[in-house]
Design a protein around this nucleic acid. Sequence first.
DNA 1: AATATGAGAATCGTTAACAATCCTTGTCAA
DNA 2: TTGACAAGGATTGTTAACGATTCTCATATT
Lengths: 236, 236
Amino acid sequence: MQSESALTPQSFATDPDEQLIVERISAAVMEQRLPPDTKLSESKLCDAFGVGRMHVRRALLLLGSQGIVTLKPNRGAFVASPEPEEADEVFESRILIETALVAKMTDGLDDEILQGLERHLEAEKNARNSQDRPEVIRLSGEFHVLLAAASGNRTLARVVRELVMRSSLIVALFGPPGGVSCPEDEHPRILAALARRDVDAASRLLAAHLRHIQGGLDPNVARPEHQNLARILGLT
Amino acid sequence: MQSESALTPQSFATDPDEQLIVERISAAVMEQRLPPDTKLSESKLCDAFGVGRMHVRRALLLLGSQGIVTLKPNRGAFVASPEPEEADEVFESRILIETALVAKMTDGLDDEILQGLERHLEAEKNARNSQDRPEVIRLSGEFHVLLAAASGNRTLARVVRELVMRSSLIVALFGPPGGVSCPEDEHPRILAALARRDVDAASRLLAAHLRHIQGGLDPNVARPEHQNLARILGLT
DNA sequence: AATATGAGAATCGTTAACAATCCTTGTCAA
DNA sequence: TTGACAAGGATTGTTAACGATTCTCATATT
């Protein structure tokens, strides 16, 4: 269970404290435990991580530069809440980049990498069987990051990682209330195509997979303004 | 001459001061006026931009997160000096992303966008005729950013912009001493293919163009360690 | 002459206090 | 009851001073 090996391919973070904060918040976002528009108070984060305000501030700036957090002047940091247009952009970008990436994977597909992906899918299946929803979400996104990392191009892997993370936010916003929309067994089929060196099929399957997720999004379902308020109003 | 319209597609910077610093340093890097490994002293930047140290610090952190600047603990910020492997990664990423992007441009290619690109090429030609080297370098890179922006996908445009900027660093390091390696008239030919809606040809031309630049790089020519030191040692 | 050493200066990193802005809450008037 | 308004508290933004590390350069020693 290699926890955050692929999730930290080239994080450019300089300080260990800041990197930890960035990774923790990123993980929480990927697992959809931090819903969009959640306020990220500086003081809360300070005593949550036991660090000074400066580190929290810098970490939030980094998260903001990745589109995971929105920084509103004099208001503070909030978990980003992408617009539907941005959601489209992110998925179109992923389709374009990831399919091209897989299609070019003909060389450099050694057994070691394939076995690593196999092990990952096993972990995914286990998490699904255990009904461990956050873990399923996290591993589900990580599969795409691992796929990109398998190309050996860390720069590209970093780009994909950023897009996958934003996708988690988007699914949290526009996805079906149950949680993940579809994955089912599409990941294994992609890997199977790769295992038999049919990169074109893998690319097509990947495109279909992403379009499947994208199709499960509903731009109208979201924008609850503030979830708490809505829930309270529903209970009265 | 739309100065930095396309260069600022989604800069995620929150403060106007910091955004200015980031853009200025980015521009200087793209124009290769700031060679790799140049020390970026905080105090120098402070009175250069007339802002407090905090803004400089945050701007440098953002630049570091984009791979344009390297932050060494207790040492300060330096203009990044990519390794040859990283250079390969960046160009492979660009080839993958930009060619796929152009190949999918069949729709959304209205005359307005084409005219904008035409105007840009004219500016490029003028700069070349005027022997304005920094401007040539800047516009040359900006063409690719405009091309990405023409897709209407700001997310993708931001990714391309980051890669183009790092390419400038790479060319500054490994490129021919004269300056830009090749561009010549390849940009106009790409646009011509687009104008006749032959996106496949445009994609191929773009790939050839990028490989041409990549081929002009010499991984061994670089690494002067510290230019000053080398020069001093040569004089003694 | 070359290297090692150490004091001083310069730079970066951190903390703490201060200032500014925003949010909440209570009050008052229409 | 509803709306505006103001005071208080909470949170963010900024500045300045302090501490830590590194760099420079002069000095001394081999």
